[in-house]
Amino acid sequence: MAKLENSLKNMVLSLTAITVIVGALLGYVASVTDEPIAQAAAAKQQNAIAAVVPVEGAQAGEAQKVVTANGEEAVIFPVTKDGQLVGHAVQAVSKNGFGGKITVMFGFDPEGTILGYNVLDCGGETPGLGAKMPDWFQKGAKGDVIGKNPKTNNLTVSKDEGEVDAITAATISSRAFCDAIAQAFGVLPVVEAAAEAQTSATKQAAGTSESVNEVAGE
C-alpha cells in the first residue's frame, strides 16, 4: 500500500484518528484498572493497620480524618475486637523528611503505647541511610520504639536529648520519624488531654540547639 500523501486533510485526519483511537483505548483500560488500583491502595492500608495493631481477629473501624499540629492531614482508624477497643491506627505525615514528606502508620494501644509502625512512604529518603526507616525502629532493632509511650518516654533522637537512637548518619530522617510519632500521638482521642503537654514538649525539643555532648547511639 502506498503512503498517504501530505495533504492537510490527510494529516489532520490521521493525527485526529490516532489520538481518538488511543484515547478511547486508554479510557477503556483506565475504567478496567480503576477498581484494582483503588483496591490495591485499600489493601495496602488494611495490611498496614493489621501490621501495626497486631491483635488477631481485630477489625479496623471507620476512618476519621483530622488535622495534626503541623497542619497536615492524619487518618485515625479505631481498631476493635468483639466490640472492645484494642487500639488505634494513626496514619500521620511529617514534612521534615530529608527529601520531603514521609507518611507512617502507627499503632497505639488504648493507653497510647506504640504497638507497631509501618512506613507507607519515605520515597525521598536516601537509599541506605534514611530509607532504612521501615526496619530501624522496629522491635529488637537499634532504634526500637515499640512498647514505648510518648506520654512517659521522650521519643526524640538522642541528639535532641531524647531516647531514640537515630539511624546512623541520618539524623534528619530520624527526627522526621519522631516528628511523625508526635503528630500521630497528638491526635489520639484517648490522650487528648496529654496532647497539649506533648506539643509543648515537641516545641521544646525543636528549640534546643544540637547538643555536642550527647553521643549518638553508635
Binding site: 489520538t19 488511543v22 484515547g23 486508554l26 479510557g27 483500560v29 483506565a30
Partner: peptide, 10 residues
C-alpha cells in the same frame, strides 16, 4: 487524568 502523558507530550 489518565490522558496526562499524551496531552502533555503533544
Amino acid at each position: 487524568q489518565f490522558m496526562q502523558t499524551i496531552v502533555y507530550i503533544l
